[in-house]
Amino acid sequence: MTWIKELFGVEKPVIAMCHLLAMPGDPGYDSAAGVAGVVRRARADLLALQEGGVDALMFSNEASLPYLTKVEPVTGMTMARVIGELLHEVKLPFGVNVLWDPFASIDLAAATGAKFVREIFTGVYASDFGLWNTNCGEVVRHQQHIHAQGVKLLFNIVPEAARYLADRDIVEVARSTVFNARPDGLCVSGLTAGAETDASVLAKVKQAVPQTPVFANTGVRLENVEQQLAVADGAVVGTTFKRDGTIWNEVDAARVKALMERVRSIRQR
């Protein structure tokens, strides 16, 4: 797990989601507030997360529902503008996730200097967004072509709101993904954002690929963070950091501090 300590500076890092408001073209976009409104909200959340003591950040277009598996160009362009306006205030390692387009995610990382991306890189799924196919070979070759080899790739192997078309056990998926695609890390999720990652599934994946970092990707809360980090090599946290634990609310710095204090105590044991 050498790269985790090198990149984040700690073992078992907490990567905090900086959820962006809807982008131009998205059904939920606030055209009256414009992109400036997206920047204002992102800045407030960014500062609250950093004040709360998280280890890293990940910017995503969480409010771009319903998601596309190939996003419109304006989405990545707008995210690049938002992140660019905030870069001088970003004090932590950060990643990006353009939901759910791996090419756009890697492009955005290359444009902004992000150190990692999280995406669906492998598999074929039946999902709420239609038939969801991937081509990992094309994606990693694209990564090479745009000279983004240094960007770490976190593979979400339990996509939210989707299921493998084939009847495959998660242990089989983890092992074959690591062998065939050589991910830098695996992410294990619940059904949707904010839904707790099944600890037994997390444990099975970690046991199957002990040399590959495994992250709890959804539903980590104050009440379960010790159990999740007992297995996982890190956690991606979004919803629990929001006011009242509601995903679309703004980040609550007090909730961030409470969870991070617990995490630090766990690391010291």
Rank of each mutant, 00 (worst) to 15 (best):
residue 50 Q to G: 05
residue 197 T to R: 05
residue 34 G to V: 14
residue 227 Q to V: 15
residue 70 K to T: 15
residue 87 L to M: 09
residue 59 F to W: 05
residue 11 E to H: 10
residue 216 A to P: 01
residue 210 P to C: 15
residue 114 A to I: 06
residue 237 V to S: 03
residue 3 W to R: 05
residue 170 I to G: 03
residue 206 K to W: 09
residue 162 A to G: 04
residue 252 D to N: 10
residue 236 V to S: 03
residue 19 H to R: 06
residue 263 V to G: 07
residue 108 L to Q: 03
residue 173 V to F: 07
residue 175 R to Q: 08
residue 239 T to M: 14
residue 137 G to T: 08
residue 258 A to W: 05
residue 116 F to P: 03
residue 234 G to Y: 00
residue 134 T to S: 04
residue 163 R to F: 08
residue 163 R to N: 07
residue 258 A to T: 15
residue 252 D to E: 14
residue 59 F to S: 04
residue 25 G to N: 07
residue 248 W to V: 11
residue 141 R to Y: 14
residue 74 V to E: 14
residue 103 F to D: 00
residue 181 A to V: 02
residue 106 I to F: 15
residue 36 A to S: 08
residue 197 T to D: 13
residue 86 L to E: 14
residue 134 T to I: 02
residue 88 H to K: 05
residue 181 A to Y: 10
residue 178 V to C: 12
residue 229 L to S: 07
residue 175 R to P: 03
residue 249 N to K: 09
residue 228 Q to T: 15
residue 260 M to V: 08
residue 121 F to Y: 12
residue 240 T to V: 04
residue 16 A to C: 07
residue 265 S to E: 13
residue 237 V to C: 05
residue 169 D to Q: 03
residue 44 A to L: 09
residue 33 A to F: 01
residue 42 A to N: 07
residue 155 F to T: 01
residue 201 V to K: 04
residue 240 T to D: 03
residue 232 A to H: 02
residue 172 E to W: 10
residue 38 V to A: 03
residue 45 D to Y: 03
residue 18 C to F: 09
residue 140 V to Y: 08
residue 157 I to T: 04
residue 45 D to P: 15
residue 86 L to G: 12
residue 192 T to P: 11
residue 215 F to N: 06
residue 243 R to G: 10
residue 174 A to T: 09
residue 125 Y to F: 15
residue 198 D to V: 09
residue 111 A to F: 07
residue 209 V to Y: 13
residue 60 S to D: 11
residue 231 V to R: 02
residue 128 D to F: 09
residue 105 S to N: 06
residue 60 S to I: 09
residue 109 A to Q: 06
residue 52 G to T: 02
residue 194 G to V: 06
residue 41 R to T: 14
residue 213 P to T: 01
residue 259 L to N: 07
residue 127 S to H: 11
residue 72 E to D: 10
residue 50 Q to R: 13
residue 103 F to V: 14
residue 78 T to E: 09
residue 19 H to N: 08
residue 197 T to F: 11
residue 237 V to I: 14
residue 69 T to N: 09
residue 190 G to K: 00
residue 41 R to N: 06
residue 4 I to Y: 04
residue 138 E to G: 13
residue 90 V to S: 05
residue 127 S to F: 11
residue 138 E to Q: 10
residue 124 V to C: 14
residue 174 A to S: 07
residue 110 A to V: 15
residue 136 C to F: 12
residue 18 C to R: 06
residue 179 F to N: 02
residue 1 M to C: 03
residue 161 A to Y: 11
residue 146 I to A: 02
residue 175 R to I: 00
residue 83 I to H: 01
residue 141 R to Q: 10
residue 256 V to K: 03
residue 32 A to V: 13
residue 91 K to R: 12
residue 119 E to P: 12
residue 147 H to F: 12
residue 167 D to H: 08
residue 70 K to Y: 11
residue 101 D to E: 06
residue 162 A to H: 01
residue 22 A to F: 11
residue 198 D to E: 10
residue 131 L to M: 13
residue 35 V to C: 04
residue 181 A to R: 03
residue 22 A to L: 11
residue 192 T to Y: 15
residue 183 P to M: 04
residue 133 N to R: 00
residue 123 G to N: 07
residue 182 R to I: 01
residue 168 R to Q: 07
residue 232 A to W: 02
residue 99 L to K: 01
residue 26 D to Q: 10
residue 213 P to H: 04
residue 26 D to A: 14
residue 265 S to L: 13
residue 220 V to K: 00
residue 80 A to H: 08
residue 51 E to Q: 04
residue 211 Q to H: 12
residue 23 M to E: 06
residue 209 V to D: 14
residue 80 A to M: 11
residue 83 I to A: 01
residue 216 A to N: 02
residue 78 T to V: 12
